[in-house]
Write a protein that binds this DNA or RNA. Structure first.
Lengths: 254, 254
DNA sequence: CGGGCCCCTTGATCGGGATCAACGCCCGAG
DNA sequence: CTCGGGCGTTGATCCCGATCAAGGGGCCCG
């Protein structure tokens, strides 16, 4: 009896999910959402360090992060890795695997994480039946491509401090969108991961955090980051050519 | 009368197109291909330096390169640009615009180029009617994401010589796939563009071309590149963690 | 055919960030 | 509690590739 209650609480529906505005259900009506809900498999939480999938595995499902966070990376033969993204609740993973029906990158949880599994076969069928779902899916895919373009710009042209500033600002925005404070948040990834993602050495990232603190931009304690001067951070990141208008609007609103 | 003949010759069909195996028509049957053909608008050739679309323009169509080549780039407020890709015949452009119905990057012809325009609205409808088309479309999108992941790896971790080697090898493969010589080809982009794309300075690229010649890897005359020692090139590029197995197979075949 | 511009190359110097090295701190395990 | 190890910081040095500078050569234009 008790167990049934637990199962029910685990089996949150898309309708009840606070992320539905960010995720696939966006702009679906109630009946459509129920049908999406039917194919979604909500898995037991995965622990920090566990793989969601690994490069080379057959591709069966896409995954949407429900809580926690995930890093996605390309392992190289030499044992290094290149992190290509960090994923937060409401974001989709596994899009790169549709080409060869094989995962071309690996995904590992950065903390205890829950995901919704979307069997691709079923997703295709449902996208076929619900044009709005297909549209939202394409939109998320397109967003992924766009954000990778921005990343190419960072890695190709920008100084180390600009990269870190843009990274922090990006996180800040994503936290805000999810209802968390944009000014104070915990990094779920290590300095090593940040450095790897930004194409820098760990030492450089560490030194930059120190410098940003000295400049009064941040306050940092271990992985807790507090943004003290958003406008300075924006000024730095604007060199990245990233459009920060919405952040400026936010600042002037408050 | 004469004009009619010219129009007909311009109006190549998907069925007759030598690129159909690379492009969207892949795995469609004849009747399906005719329907795809109906929505494809074949435009007059665009000249070197002309824009196919520009950042900020409303998104109406995807484009498939038919002949020639195109560079795609993000312009920054400061007037620089970051090239995010070069596109060859059979490849799709404009995928990043589906998110906001606005182009988030610009595309310009590197030489006289012809493209097939695919009005997105019609594409969506046709994808809905032809599952095979939808699948091939998703596959091409996925491929785009995958190749951008590889680019992130290059820019994040690799030495200049490895980047250029991997770039040339990548071109070589794509020429081969299109029925051209993988060992001798003309670069349609300037040194400046190559440097920009690879996150290097023009001078560095130029010096590397010289060094590769001294090492007997290449022969270069202006934009004509001849690969003299494919295995050395592969050895260099393998440091990039790029899978070169198919190239090795090709070498041992010959 | 001649001039100018752009593309490319080559040389010299500089500097941002990688690398090497060492240490402090937090945290979990025993 | 103590020990050990991973994570993060800081300092010193080095090097790859950027930048500055200059010159050559092809191509398009008049």
């Amino acid at each position: 009896m008790n167990q049934i209650v637990n199962l029910k609480s685990l089996k949150t529906t898309c309708q009840a999910c606070s992320l539905s505005e960010l995720c696939l259900p966006r702009s679906l009506d109630d009946s459509e959402m129920v049908r999406l809900d039917d194919i979604v498999q909500r898995k037991r939480p995965i622990k920090k360090g566990e793989f969601l999938f690994q490069v080379g595995q057959p591709f069966r499902s896409l995954y949407a992060v429900r809580s926690g966070s995930v890093k996605v990376f390309l392992p190289t033969p030499s044992g290094e890795e290149q992190i290509v993204g960090f994923h937060m609740p409401g974001e989709l993973l596994g899009l790169d695997a549709m080409e060869h029906d094989t995962h071309s990158c690996s995904a590992v949880a950065l903390e205890t994480t829950t995901v919704c599994e979307l069997p691709y076969q079923n997703m295709q069928e449902l996208c076929h039946q619900i044009p709005g779902l297909n549209h939202q899916f394409m939109s998320l895919v397109s967003k992924e491509i766009g954000s990778e373009h921005e990343m190419l710009l960072m890695l190709g042209k920008k100084m180390a401090d600009v990269r870190l500033a843009a990274f922090l600002l990006n996180l800040s925005c994503r936290f805000r969108t999810r209802g968390f404070s944009p000014n104070e948040f915990n990094l779920s990834m290590s300095r090593h991961d940040i450095a790897n993602y930004l194409g820098l050495a760990v030492e450089t990232v560490s030194r930059l955090f120190t410098r940003f603190q000295e400049d009064g931009i941040l306050e940092v304690h271990r992985r807790l980051v507090t943004i003290r001067d958003m406008s300075k951070l924006v000024a730095l990141a604007e060199y990245a050519g990233i459009n920060c208008q919405h952040i400026k609007d936010m600042i002037s609103d408050s």
